[in-house]
Nucleic acid binder design. Structure first.
Lengths: 154, 154
DNA sequence: CTTTATGCAAAGGGTTTGCAACAAA
DNA sequence: TTTGTTGCAAACCCTTTGCATAAAG
């Protein structure tokens, strides 16, 4: 469906790793990238099963780290119990997240300088950054004024 | 022992909240701030018990959120299974963490601009930041060269 | 055929919670 | 006393794992 390139890239990656291309893995990859919303493992299982009923929870949990390793899916720690996954890094490599404590929504924003700035600091300390993750918890000014928040997208 | 002001502030905070000042809470607060190292809940339990044997795991878990609420202790998500706690925010309010994937050590560094920069971006999006957390995973250039890392402090 | 992957269900492991006993105020 | 707090152990809940079966190559 959506993002055929991404799916193809991942299948190629798996094949190159000597992994077998099973119907379950294909369904999971498909489900993982046919949305732009953040999702949990449970969430992904549900959607993958709509593509192939035989997908199990275990396989989803076993496949997710592979997707993350490709760099096309990002694991998000939003401070909840569960991990979230973000399929938008292929198109937006420099985005970070604001977590609204009022409406519980997650808003993505780009900061093209963050990486450069923080890498500079880290380099001076003798490190070579692999990932730079920024998380902002915030309240919504609109909510503070009107008691409601119009943001309803991930 | 160390940081008597901090301990006092927290006890005051608890009293102001109508909370009772129990020996267990005092021991936990003492243990929480007589070190500059990061620690886990289990870790803190161990050290609190050296001050008062009667401290239980449950009370540690029930007390930690209170300490975090005071703003003097910070909960750190280092990507491990357990949460870590950082008692150094009173003296270094603007520090963030580099997690070295080579030696598994955590290095603190100050970035006095991060808050200002990111708050500006967030404000423009209609948010009022409550916390700005930055986490850098990195490899160690020294380790890459010599195969060993001289950093052995948290 | 050989070897990897799968589903199931049980185990793991940090954290939370119900409850009766206990101790601040 | 009164009411909040504690310790214990069980419950929680997401995630991982062992194992026999299934299917990719």
């Amino acid at each position: 469906m959506t993002k055929p390139d991404v799916k193809e890239q991942i299948i190629d990656f798996m094949a190159n790793q000597g992994m077998r291309i099973t119907v379950q893995r294909q369904a999971i990859v498909e489900a993982a990238f046919n949305t732009e919303e953040h999702y949990t493992a449970e969430n992904l299982l549900e959607r993958a099963r709509k593509i192939d009923q035989s997908v199990s929870r275990a396989t989803v949990y076993r496949t997710l780290p592979v997707l993350v390793k490709t760099g096309l899916l990002r694991e998000l720690d939003l401070g909840k119990n569960e991990m979230y996954y973000d399929p938008n890094y292929a198109s937006h490599p420099n985005h970070n997240h604001i977590i609204c404590t009022d409406c519980d929504k997650i808003v993505e924003f780009d900061d093209y300088c963050l990486d450069v700035r923080e890498s500079f600091i880290a380099n001076n300390l003798g490190f070579r950054p692999v990932t730079v993750k920024l998380r902002i918890e915030a309240t919504c000014t609109q909510f503070a004024k009107t008691g409601a928040c119009s943001r309803k997208n991930s």
